[in-house]
């Protein structure tokens, strides 16, 4: 088996006096979608932020394609090819949709073919291309947020709860976009609470609890075992789906 695209080994992260990550270990294999699951407040978002260098790991290694990035500043990590979609979208409301996309394509001008593909996946972006991003609806803002990460081919995508609080129709658009990204062979680490989306997209799963990884394995195995879900996350994600 080839080396993973991303490997976290014994990562500890503190925020003020709180020990949020307490020795996190997991891999994100190449060309696969790895689901990062767990209850609220167990350290999923902190894990993504630590990988991006926003929170500095107190100890441990974060290897991107074999290179330790734990001590690198955030812009350097982004320039190594890590696309990050934060939970709160983080779009630039004062800029137009076009300007948001241009800024995200930091390695050069926008690639027309890739842009056409993004327009086919997220049609509202083409409609409001010259409009201010702040005037978009919640779902459209999320589309823009994900499209910004997808505007260039990245080595790794970190995506934090892309379907949170969205209408079912938009959730299905998001899932379709992520499916297409997966089919292109992208390596993705995805935090997702919507189980039907997680089950449809995930190849493997990492479950966290209290700042530690408590289970890793195939997503299909977790999806098929309601008792395991109950034990790991305190609820059966099959419920209601």
């Amino acid at each position: 088996m080839s080396d993973p695209m991303l490997r976290l080994s014994g990562v500890y992260t503190d925020i003020a006096q709180y020990h949020i990550l307490q020795g996190v270990n997991f891999d994100v294999p190449r060309g696969q979608v790895t689901m990062l699951l767990g209850r609220n407040g167990v350290g999923k978002t902190t894990s993504l932020r630590t990988i991006m260098g926003h929170w500095r790991a107190r100890a441990g290694q974060i290897l991107l394609d074999g290179q330790d990035i734990a001590a690198l500043p955030t812009p350097a990590i982004a320039r190594l090819g890590v696309g990050y979609v934060p939970e709160n979208m983080g779009i630039f409301s004062d800029l137009t949709v076009e300007e948001n996309m241009i800024l995200a394509a930091s390695s050069g001008p926008l690639d027309r073919t890739r842009l056409d593909w993004l327009f086919s996946v997220f049609p509202p972006l083409q409609t409001f291309w010259k409009g201010h991003a702040g005037n978009l609806s919640g779902g459209q803002k999320q589309m823009l947020s994900i499209a910004r990460a997808m505007v260039e081919e990245r080595r790794l995508y970190l995506i934090d709860e892309p379907t949170k609080g969205l209408a079912p129709a938009i959730v299905s658009t998001m899932a379709g976009a992520l499916r297409q990204l997966k089919d292109q062979g992208a390596s993705i680490l995805l935090v997702e609470q919507n189980f039907s989306v997680a089950r449809a997209l995930g190849d493997s799963a990492v479950v966290m609890d209290d700042g530690r990884v408590v289970w890793t394995g195939a997503m299909a195995e977790l999806a098929g075992d309601a008792a395991l879900q109950e034990r790991l996350m305190g609820l059966s994600m099959e419920a209601g789906h």
């Binding site: 500043p73 982004a78 779009i91 004062d94 800024l103 930091s106």
Partner: peptide, 17 residues
């Protein structure tokens, strides 16, 4: 303008704030 609005996000897409 991007930095003014969200400096962490600007860093996360590769700009040295």
């Amino acid at each position: 303008q991007a930095i003014r609005e969200n400096d962490f996000r600007a860093e996360a897409i590769g700009y040295r704030v």
